[in-house]
Nucleic acid binder design. Structure first.
Length: 493
RNA sequence: GACAAGGUGGCUGAAUGGUCAAGGCAAUGGAUUGCAAAUCCAUCAUUUAUGAGUUCGAAUCUCAUCCUUGUCUCCA
């Protein structure tokens, strides 16, 4: 199914600041690279939002029939705490702190990362390369940049020469910065600094004798600079120019700016056609920060074991909540917002559960084909999931009306509605139906049927004490009875 | 201080020049119900941080001010 031939997708390109029609470099194929986590601590909820956004994008491309190669790296070396001379590798620092091998740190938090993303129903990327697995490729790129004259060696380290590069190229075009301004706002170099210019960044850092993470190179033992791994791995798996590069807004500068510089310096041309940036997640209107306590881990939301929220929320509800905002907007997570999302989520799932049993007729009061295209239009407009969800609720309303017998639907439209709804909710948005009623054990259904029958008998006899007792006790257990025209049904919250 | 993304109803969150500013949640009235819940119908921002400007027309463009988030710088 090559749906992409019928749909015009527009994406917001951070490089130009405009929405552009998406045209892949190779027809029918999409190459997408997203900067993955540095695995030195448990994955942050904000990171989850970014990866969830790109998971949705990945899913929509697939849904449209593109063959997608989605590469998301694991940074397991080289991410310095800061760019100063005493900059320490984040992973090496954590290893020292916990007195374990750096690779134990990497292993522990990579597993946590995968577990968390799996809970939120993220699809695994096509390739998930690690920085340490691509040291050779990174060294090769450094050699090329050195050959082209855009880098210099100093005392066993190699630095990218930003000023030289800016003479032939434009450094700062992604983040809207001017090199002159940056230089004007910078202090003088200290005497012991190896860099020619404070804006220069490390391609290769010399490893001090006590440094554990080290690899041999033409410039001596050392380790790669943080920005380099993404250039090496994206080029290796997606080519010198690929379609989409994604990541969090916070990576725009310097990380992505440096990626552009490295690629242009080594290959002579721009590496990426469309730059997509996902916006940040705040908590109760403020940035998340471990030091102020305004912070929550994914596992704490799911378990409810935290001081910030009133209750636990399922991963599907959290995902639905995130999808209700556009990926380029700042999203604020709060208890009120999650509660509202949970109710909306339940209503959506309820309607989808009722879809199958709808009675069909000879005509439809609901323009399913028009509605379906509206859903595509929403997604085609830079993956506008909030608008898509608004349309989904339009379908919910019609499903409920049909169920009540106030509207009609033909068999063909019902099938179309069901297929489309499932495609957008499950396949594109990646929202699972986690209501317990779905995995219906026959025993539970049998017991419920019995209770409903007993209650209805009591109601018929006007024994409301008994009928209300059954209803209230079930409510206390989290089972809600629903008296409809067609009889009584139940749902489990 | 610089750059970037923003500031929309009680909460959340769409809409970037064109009649009434989506949707979810909450709220109010009605239908339904033994009473509720669920469901349906109706109501719910003369107004988009503030001030000024451009325009026949602005939430949307321009300028100023205030605020939030991110990055850099400074500081440490």
């Amino acid at each position: 199914m090559q749906l992409y031939k019928d749909q015009t997708l527009r994406v917001h390109n951070s490089l130009t600041g405009k929405k552009e029609v998406f045209q892949p470099i190779n027809e029918g194929h999409v190459g997408m690279y997203v900067c993955g986590p540095t695995v030195y601590s448990n994955v942050h909820l904000g990171n989850c939002r970014t990866f969830m956004s790109f998971d949705m994008i990945f899913r929509y491309f697939k849904h449209l029939g593109y063959k997608v190669r989605y590469v998301r790296n694991i940074t397991d070396a080289g991410h310095l705490e800061n760019d100063a001379d005493d900059g320490e590798d984040k992973i090496a620092k954590k290893a020292k702190l916990e007195q374990i091998e750096p690779m134990e740190v990497v292993q522990r938090y990579t597993v946590d990362f995968h577990n968390t993303l799996q809970q939120f129903n993220l699809l695994p990327p096509s390739i998930e390369p690690t920085a340490t697995g691509h040291i050779i490729e990174q060294i090769e790129i450094i050699k090329e940049i050195l050959e082209k004259g855009y880098a210099y060696e100093a005392n066993g380290s190699v630095y990218f020469d930003v000023i030289k590069f800016n003479k032939d190229h434009e450094y700062g075009k992604l983040s809207g910065r001017k090199l002159e301004d940056m230089i004007a706002n910078t202090r003088e170099l200290t005497a012991q600094d190896e860099k020619r210019n404070p804006q220069d960044f490390a391609l290769w850092k010399k490893a001090e004798p006590q440094h554990i993470m080290r690899w041999p190179s033409p410039w001596g033992d050392g380790f790669p600079g943080w920005h380099l791994e993404c250039t090496a791995m994206s080029t290796k798996y997606l080519g010198e120019t690929f379609d989409i590069h994604g990541g969090g807004m916070d990576l725009k500068f310097p990380h992505h700016e440096c990626e552009i510089a490295q690629a242009e310096a080594s290959t002579g041309h721009a590496p990426v056609k469309y730059w997509l940036h996902a916006n940040m997640l705040t908590l109760n209107g403020k940035k998340m920060s471990k030091s102020t306590g305004n912070n929550i881990y994914p596992s704490e939301i799911i378990s409810g074991d935290n001081d910030i929220l009133s209750k636990a929320y399922s991963p599907a509800v959290v995902r639905f909540f995130m999808m209700q905002a556009h990926y380029t907007s700042i999203l604020d997570l709060s208890d009120d917002a999650l509660q509202a999302s949970e109710k909306g989520y339940n209503r959506l799932m309820e309607a989808m559960g009722n879809l199958d049993s709808l009675k069909t007729g000879s005509k439809s009061d609901f323009d399913v084909a028009g509605w379906k295209q509206k859903c595509y239009d929403a997604m085609n407009d830079d993956f506008n999931t909030p608008i898509l969800i608004a349309h989904l609720f339009d379908a919910v309303k019609h499903i409920n009306l049909i169920k009540e017998g106030k509207e009609n639907v033909t068999e063909a439209d019902k099938t179309e509605l069901e297929t489309t709804l499932k495609a957008f909710v499950y396949e594109v948005l990646g929202i699972e139906n986690q209501s317990l009623a779905k995995d219906d054990s026959n025993a539970l259904n049998g017991v419920m049927e019995l209770l409903i029958q007993l209650r209805n008998e009591a109601r018929a006899n006007k024994d409301f004490a008994t009928s209300d007792k059954i209803r209230d006790e079930l409510t206390a257990l989290g089972i809600q009875l629903k008296d409809g025209k067609e009889g009584t049904t139940f749902s489990i919250n």
